[in-house]
Every structure is written in structure tokens, then in C-alpha cells.
Design a protein around this nucleic acid. Structure first.
Lengths: 342, 342
DNA sequence: GATTAGCACTCGCAAGGTGTGAGTGCTAAT
DNA sequence: ATTAGCACTCACACCTTGCGAGTGCTAATC
């Protein structure tokens, strides 16, 4: 059922006013800011909106507060979807990190800037996309049966881990390992490596199969980990300064974030290009009063993910959403252009 | 001026009771738990202790609360410095990470366990000690004038960073770079590398000096960073569940921690083998109600630092301090024994 | 001289009462 | 359909009051 134009206007004004003040919005205040309609009329409209689940009252004699449904409608339909102002764009461009050589660091500093600029916690997820290749593999013996396994991807991400194996790695073993890696893995897509691939490699090691099982599967472990999506959160601290937050809510939220996987799964299930996830619409009570504003980004053809912020549901979506979108756009364009691919 | 035995006993009981209950301790309650002396006498003693700065009253008709001075005395002199109980030691041993090959990861999981066990935030600092050598240096070209610089230390720590240089790195350049590194850096103590050393290297590059300045100084950057102390904090979230914490205090604390350097400098200035830093004795108001319990540890002869926790000043030092000490001891012994050095 | 019982006093805190004001719903008039 | 008017509701801030825990002081006691 479609709301009348006037109802929409009233709802829209309520949302904006509430976002600004944080106080329940009364009919009289609305009357002033709308003009032309009396408070009594507005009261009628408001009670209609309340009946239909767009508004609630904290108590009988208080003004109205927008519900999740109201926010949803506001964000999807009512909100002015104008491009970010020139001033905002300039400000964002100033914030963009000096995209030096290292894209991971650049992304990190980008979210840092985002968090600072919005005063919210900022997040970035990253997922290795199908274009990412295995660029280099190293196995560096470190004594006492230990060795450092290093894997570099075409996007320049480096992962290294120390392992200790049950056999001593002779120069011959290492050479064999590296040539096997060269043959089966280097230049291959990271995502294409399956457990079966590793089995094949071990099998083709001939007489060295026994000794090389451990290193190969260690490599598999790293490859698998690299393939996983990651979530990075920055500036969680800022959540503490938001109005209306309580200690216990903050605690719940931090608890949820420290899991990480849940947020990742949520974003995955969401899947949109950009927009807002209202915390109240999720199954996490920790997010009751918070929301996520997100936009997809991609760096070269190596990494994709979401970048965005977590802030109070009562936030100024009008400027934040376009801001984030522009930010993600800039990030993608920038890195793509300057860095190219290998 | 030395306190009488009885004053010490009273003070000690006040500290213990207050730590347990969190309520100001009155003369009557003390009378019950001490026995043998009347509440009036205790009141006299208490007012003496109050005059000498060991106790305060939140208000006239409330019990007494220990001051920092009282905690200090309690921890240094009054507290029973018994070895941790067998049960506690067993519990700690259970918590110790499976010290696999990778000491950095092991340490991280150790602090994680510590945080969980104590319900406090846990911290670990690490500093490269003089025994650490440069074990391997790699320069891997990644296209578009970019290259990945990798440095491995004898303790197995790997640092890698992508750089983009103003010249294209030919195979010849890289070879030259690596042989220079081999000659001047590999096997050297990490801490011994000075800016002057880098100058020398560049100078000895002969015709390649111009092209190799950038990579060499990039290497210098990494070496310098590796030499810096680091601070890792885990489980800050748990601070939020401590009784008596406020949102603004938590915010202040997180703010302080995110700086990192200040805490490091503080520990550095402190310098003891193990013990307690009372937040109230520091210059940080963020810490007025919190304290740090710390103990030095060392891994092989490569890394040293402090491991410990941050919790409310009103905490049970009796068992936590010996616990941390035993933890650090175990950590050092364990890693030293199992890992040896390269 | 140290210790103790007794007592008056202080003060935070929770409970209960009250007034105020913002905001509503309803009704009758326009 | 809109509006003015009015009675009603309810959170909140404010004040008062009583209670109880705990103190400091004094005079008696060991």
C-alpha cells in the first residue's frame, strides 16, 4: 500500500528531525517545520503512520520516533539521492590515502580516514577475486627442522608462516619442493587450488612424497587462509562516543565484532552494490541501535569487498551514503589506475 | 616512617576486603574480620592511616577506601608473596599455547589465553634483543617498478612490504642489491644497523649507487621498524565488563591504548622485572582506576618484553601477580627449551 | 597510657510525593 | 477534510523525608 504524498513528506521530516535532534518528534514541532498544515492534521496522519508500523512512541505523551520500517522507506525511497556535494567530494579526496605501492596498507589507511571523517567505526572486507595468481613461493630453512614458508600473490599480498616439520629439510628436499611448486602452483589462480591439487603434487613427488607431504599441506593451509574473506574493523573506539550508547550495548557489539565471521556472512548474504543495513533488521540484538552503510569496492582485479561504516541507526544517511559510495568509487578508480596489475 | 604491625594488619585487611567487595570498609566490618580489637580502636587506627594518606573516605559517613599509597604498600610489603598454588599453576599450564613453530603466533595466543583467564585486557610488548640477526633478505620484482622487499630475522620474524621505485629493477640491479645485502647485512645484528651503515652500502654500490639508493633505504626503513618495540593488546573488550567502569573512562583508555607509544614508554621507564604499575601513580587520568600487572619474558635470545594484564586497580593481586610471573616464566622456559636458536 | 563503650552527629541514598510541560486523542465546529 | 479547543496522560525533575551505616569525640575502664 502506497503512502500519500503528504504522509511521505511528514514521515520524511520526522526521520530527518529525529536524526538531527535525537528527541521524539511532536506534532507541534512538525507543524512549524512543515507549515501550511495544522498540528491536529499532522496528529491524525501521525497516528495513521503509527498504526502502520512506521512510528512508535516511547510513552503515551511523547513525540514519535521512526521505526526500522520508517528508516527503510526513508533510505530506499524518500531520501534525496543526490550526488555528494562538491565540498564533500573535495573533503573525501583530501582524505584518500597516498596510494603508495602497497595496496593493503593503502586500504587500511583508507578505512582509518573514513572512520576519522565520519566519527564512526569503519570496516573493510576483502576477498581474493578470481584474477589473483600465485606469484612466488619460498621455503626458507630456519634450523631445528623449522622453515619459513612464504607465499606472494600477484596482487602483492605476502603471507609467511613458520612451520616445524618432522624431517630435516635438506637442500635437495627444498629444491624438489620448489620445483614442484613452480610446476603446479606458480601462475595458477589462487582460488583454483583444491585439496585434490595438493594430493596430486604430493603424488608426483615420487620418492620424496613422504618428506614433502608436510610442507605441501602447510602450503595448502596458507593458500586456504588467503582465499578466505577477511574483515577489518577500525576505530571501534568511536562507537563509545556515540550518543545513546550504553556500556552493555557497546560490550555486546564488540563481542559480535570480535567473532568477525558473522558480520562477513551477513554482508555476503546481503550482496548489494551499496546501501544501508539496518541493525534492527538483522538477527543481532547487539546491533539494535546501529546500522551499517556500505559500498562495494575493488582493487585491480585482485581484491573486492565492502568498505563502509558502522554507526548509530540514527545517523545522517543523506550525506553519509553518497559519501561512502564516492569513497569506494574513488578507491577503486584510484588503485586500478595507478597500480594496474601484474 | 614505619607503620606498627597492627596498622599494617588493619591496612592489609582493608585492602583485601575492599578488593573483594568494592564497598568502602567500615570499622565494624573490620572488627568482625580481625577480632580481638574493638571497633573504636580500629577507628583510631583508621583515622591515623587516613591522615597519613593510606585511606580516603568517599564521604563523611562512609567507610574507608585504600588509596594508591595503600595499594603500593600492600603490593610491595604486605601482600603474602607466596608461590602460586599448585592448582593455579596447573590451570596456567593448561592455558599455555601449543608452542608450535611460530613464536609470534604462540605469544599472541598466550596473551589471548591470559586475557581470557583473568577476564582482563592482556598485553604483550616485544623488543628485538641484541642477539637477533638478519637471516635473509629478498627483493621480488612485482611489475610496474614495484617490488616486494622481504626481511627474515634469525628469530623467524618476517617483515615484507611492497615498494614502488622510480627506476625499473632489472635482474642485474636486483642481483647487485642482494649481493650487497649479503655482504653488509646478512648475519649482522639487527640492532647494529645504523643509517651510516646504509650510506656505506650505497657508496659501495659503485655505478649502481643511484639506482640502489631507494631500495637500500627502503630496507633501512624495514630494519628500523623491526627494531622498534611493539605493543599488542588483546581483549580490551573485557575492560567494559569490569565493575565500576564508565563509558567515558573506557573511551579514554581505548584512546590511550590506540596511541601505543605512550604505554611502551611507560613500561620502558618502569623497567622492573615484574610487579604492578598503579594507574593512579601514572600521569594518565585514563588509568586512574586501572592498573597493570606485568612480568618480563624472553624468547630465546631474540625477543624480550613484558607480558601482563590491565585491570581495575581494585583487583586480586594476591593471585594475579604470582600467576603472571609464573606465566612469563613458563613462556620463557618453554620457548627457550623447545625452540632453541638458529 | 592504651583500649573501649556509648552517644551525638553527618551524610549518602532510596522512597515517596508533587508540579510541570510536552504531547496526545477526541470532539465539535468550520 | 481540516482545524481549534480541551481534557487527559505520563516522564521527568525537584523536593522532602526517613533510614542506616559509619564516624569522631568523650568519659570510663583495664
Amino acid at each position: 500500500m502506497e503512502l500519500s504524498e503528504r504522509k511521505k513528506q511528514i514521515l520524511s521530516t520526522i526521520v530527518r528531525t529525529y536524526v538531527q535532534t535525537g528527541e521524539p518528534v511532536g506534532s507541534k514541532a512538525l507543524c512549524d517545520s512543515l507549515g501550511g498544515i495544522s498540528s491536529a492534521t499532522i496528529r491524525n496522519e501521525m497516528s495513521f503512520l503509527a498504526e502502520n508500523g512506521y512510528l512508535t512512541q516511547p510513552h503515551t505523551s511523547a513525540g514519535r520516533i521512526p521505526t526500522n520500517r520508517a528508516y527503510r522507506l526513508y533510505i530506499d525511497d524518500l531520501m534525496p539521492r543526490r550526488a555528494p556535494s562538491e565540498a564533500l567530494m573535495a573533503q573525501i579526496r583530501r582524505l584518500m590515502p597516498d596510494t603508495s605501492a602497497d595496496s593493503q596498507r593503502a586500504l587500511l589507511s583508507a578505512v582509518g580516514a573514513l572512520s576519522k571523517a565520519t566519527g564512526c567505526a569503519a570496516l573493510i572486507t576483502s576477498q581474493v577475486s578470481s584474477g589473483t595468481l600465485i606469484h612466488k613461493i619460498e621455503l626458507i630453512p630456519m634450523g631445528f627442522n623449522r622453515a619459513l614458508l612464504v607465499l606472494v600473490t600477484s596482487s602483492g599480498a605476502v603471507t609467511s608462516r613458520m612451520y616445524s616439520f618432522s624431517v630435516t629439510l635438506t637442500g635437495e628436499l627444498i629444491g624438489r619442493f620448489l620445483s614442484l611448486a613452480e610446476e603446479h602452483l606458480i601462475g595458477k589462480e589462487l582460488n583454483s587450488i583444491q585439496p585434490a591439487t595438493l594430493q596430486t603434487i604430493v603424488a608426483s613427488a615420487g620418492g620424496f612424497a613422504l618428506e614433502l607431504t608436510e610442507p605441501v599441506f602447510a602450503l595448502g593451509e596458507i593458500i586456504e587462509e588467503l582465499g578466505k574473506s577477511t574483515l577489518t574493523l577500525v576505530g571501534e573506539t568511536r562507537l563509545l562516543s556515540h550518543p545513546g550508547i550504553t556500556l552493555s550495548k557497546a560490550h555486546e557489539m564488540f563481542e559480535l565484532f570480535s567473532g568477525g565471521d558473522e558480520i562477513l556472512a551477513m554482508l555476503d548474504a546481503w550482496g548489494k552494490e551499496s546501501g544501508v543495513i539496518l541493525g534492527g533488521d538483522t538477527s543481532y540484538t547487539a546491533l539494535d541501535r546501529s546500522s551499517l552503510v556500505l559500498s562495494k569496492y575493488s582493487v585491480g582485479n585482485a581484491t573486492t569487498g565492502y568498505i563502509g561504516i558502522i554507526g548509530p541507526t540514527r545517523m545522517d544517511y543523506d550525506s553519509i551514503l553518497p559519501g561512502i559510495e564516492y569513497f569506494a568509487h574513488l578507491l577503486s578508480a584510484d588503485t586500478q589506475q595507478k597500480k594496474g596489475l601484474i
